[in-house]
Write a protein that binds this DNA or RNA. Structure first.
Length: 375
RNA sequence: GCAGAGUUAGUGAAGCGGUCAAACACAAGAGACUGUAAAUCUCUCGGCAUUCGCCUUCGAAGGUUCGAAUCCUUCACUCUGCA
């Protein structure tokens, strides 16, 4: 068969995700096998860009139900550098996170640092936002860095563009380049990991692009699925488009995943309704800065996915916890909204930490609601 | 007592004849944030109308001027020197 001829490789045959159950709402329950242990899916993964989930101890992160944490290739490469991290016990020993760690490739910075970067076919040259230093990241170096960091799951270096009106014209270029770069990522990955036992290899995710164009999305998914990658990442969403547009793509892709043993990772989505929608359309893993960033900005979720600003004046004397009935540490310990409002107003970092714990628990609980039998 | 300096919206602080309802910072109020240049950013912040606009303000009271937060006089208070 043509597809098999293209993909006779070990990564495709390897069972990276064991599908435990299909739910009637379209979601699926699974066990993700990484070299750093198994993880229950669907799962939400907070971003610890610089090697830690901001303002939280690993124990506090784990206590929210989170099982995987992200780190970022671009940030850790620039500072302190993968050599330093390697010498300090790779990303696990560095940040003391015992579970699996996934690194993002730096592809997001192609988008978020668009004013500070230049794209060529070779790769992307970034100007350091602070020092002005120029640094080239290529598909090959991204893979090298991620492996040196010691991540258990890594992402192919892709070309991400925004989906605001201005940037949509770049979709085709980004789509094509992403696939050319994927081949180079895979080649480099194989070169550096072929000598490892398959069970000791990190999992490489290829990234699906294509903007809002359904045909491009179909083609991109096909290309990624026919590549020697261990996981499928859906990229290029939640970057300026409407929710309806994002949902349309997720809905379109849902029936097209061809291999239940490969995890599907939706990059960068973390608004509770979006998480639910994604999970109910076959997504197993999601990461996002939203729960922790919002928390540091005093915004938390309560029942019904409602956003609440804890700095609001109405909370001055409020003795209630962030969310009644919540089983997170912050709510369970009884910290009042009045206390949190005050600590936010005076700039006390503990307030952001307590709110982060709550928001992470809120998202973990959403994921757990799809996998009751596994708990 | 004498000589200087000062008193500006919640606070600090610019302004020194028209372009001043009055810079800026903080405080206050509201909001944004989706693979983290983000413990950040945006808006509002005398009163009313909330579109045009109108009204009351720059220690107090008088005065000069077409026009004063800005110049003059007196008073009140604050600070710094000398007694």
């Amino acid at each position: 068969m043509f597809v098999l001829y293209l993909t006779p490789m070990s990564e495709v045959k390897r069972t990276i995700l064991t599908e435990v159950k299909k739910n009637s709402d379209g979601s699926r329950v699974g066990i993700l096998h990484t070299r750093q242990g198994n993880v229950n899916t669907p799962t939400f993964m907070p971003d610890g860009t610089r090697g830690v989930v901001k303002s939280l101890l690993p124990e506090q992160v784990a206590a929210t139900g989170v099982q995987i944490v992200l780190a970022n290739t671009y940030h850790l490469h620039l500072q302190p550098g993968e050599d330093v991290i390697k010498s300090l016990g790779d990303v696990h020993g560095f940040g003391k996170w015992k579970g699996p760690i996934l690194t993002d490739s730096g592809g997001f910075q192609v988008f978020s640092l668009s004013k500070l970067r230049k794209i060529t076919e070779e790769g992307v040259t970034f100007k350091h936002p602070v020092t002005g230093e120029m640094r080239l990241i290529t598909p090959e170096t991204s893979i090298q860095i991620q492996l040196a960091l010691g991540a258990d799951m890594i992402v192919a270096f892709d070309h991400l563009t925004g989906l605001d009106d201005e940037s949509r014209k770049d979709t085709l270029e980004a789509f094509e380049r992403t696939h050319r770069w994927l081949e180079r990522c895979i080649a480099e990955f194989k070169r550096l990991t072929d000598n490892l036992e398959p069970s000791r290899r990190p999992i490489l995710f290829g990234v699906v692009q294509g903007g809002l164009d359904l045909e491009l999305r179909r083609k991109s998914l096909e290309i990624v699925q026919n590549s020697e990658v261990g996981g499928i990442a859906i990229g290029g969403l939640s970057v300026g488009e409407s929710k309806e547009e994002m949902y349309k793509i997720l809905e379109f892709l849902a029936p097209l995943y061809d291999n239940s043993a490969r995890p599907r990772f939706l990059l960068g989505v973390g608004d509770p309704p979006d998480i639910r929608f994604a999970i109910e359309h076959g997504i197993d893993m999601l990461d996002c800065v939203l729960p922790t960033r919002n928390a540091r900005h005093a915004t938390i979720w309560i029942e019904g996915d409602k956003k609440v600003h804890l700095t609001n004046a109405k909370f001055v004397n409020d003795p209630l916890p962030i969310m009644e009935g919540c089983d997170c540490y912050s709510c369970h310990s009884g910290y009042s909204r009045g206390f949190l409002r005050h600590q936010f107003k005076v700039g006390e970092p503990l307030a952001g930490s307590l709110a982060s714990i709550h928001n992470l628990r809120y998202l973990s609980r959403i994921c757990e609601s799809y996998r009751p039998s596994v708990e």
